[in-house]
């Protein structure tokens, strides 16, 4: 399995792994086998499940009629579905659910403090 396949496989267990550079002590996202700064080999590490909602919108596209937004989880920024209506920009969020649909990451954001 390549790196992407390995990470996607773990999503089945609800675990969001990303690549981490032990030398620079930082997340490398999107995932990469090598650190983009020092080029040392990265290791897989589970991401912190607390983030901030940077921006949000509402999609009217058929079969995708829902709120979505971009979350920042300690530098890992990703777009996901917002499953709770009371969430606003700059709120703390958590990842409720994660799966792979059509080889894409389908992630659900909820309120962290709930």
């Amino acid at each position: 399995m390549n790196l992407k396949e390995t990470i996607f496989e773990k999503f089945k267990d609800g675990i969001f792994l990303n690549t981490f550079c032990p030398h620079c002590k930082k997340q490398i996202w999107p995932p990469s086998n090598n650190c983009k700064d020092c080029f040392n080999k990265t290791v897989l590490k589970e991401i912190e499940n607390k983030g901030i909602l940077l921006e949000m919108s509402y999609s009217h596209i058929p079969k995708q009629e829902n709120f979505f937004g971009i979350g920042d989880f300690s530098g890992i920024r990703i777009l996901g579905t917002i499953v709770e209506k009371n969430i606003k920009v700059n709120d703390s969020i958590t990842i409720y659910n994660i799966k792979i649909i059509d080889n894409k990451i389908s992630i659900e954001f909820g309120n962290y403090n709930k």
């Binding site: 999107p30 921006e55 995708q64 979505f68 990703i78 996901g80 894409k104």
Partner: peptide
């Protein structure tokens, strides 16, 4: 290539987020 867009991978998704920020 861009997996960071998740299932919201059409150009209109990022464009709408730029617009929302500008509005705000």
């Amino acid at each position: 290539w861009d997996i960071t867009r998740g299932i919201y991978d059409l150009p209109i998704h990022w464009a709408s987020l730029f617009a929302k920020t500008h509005f705000r």
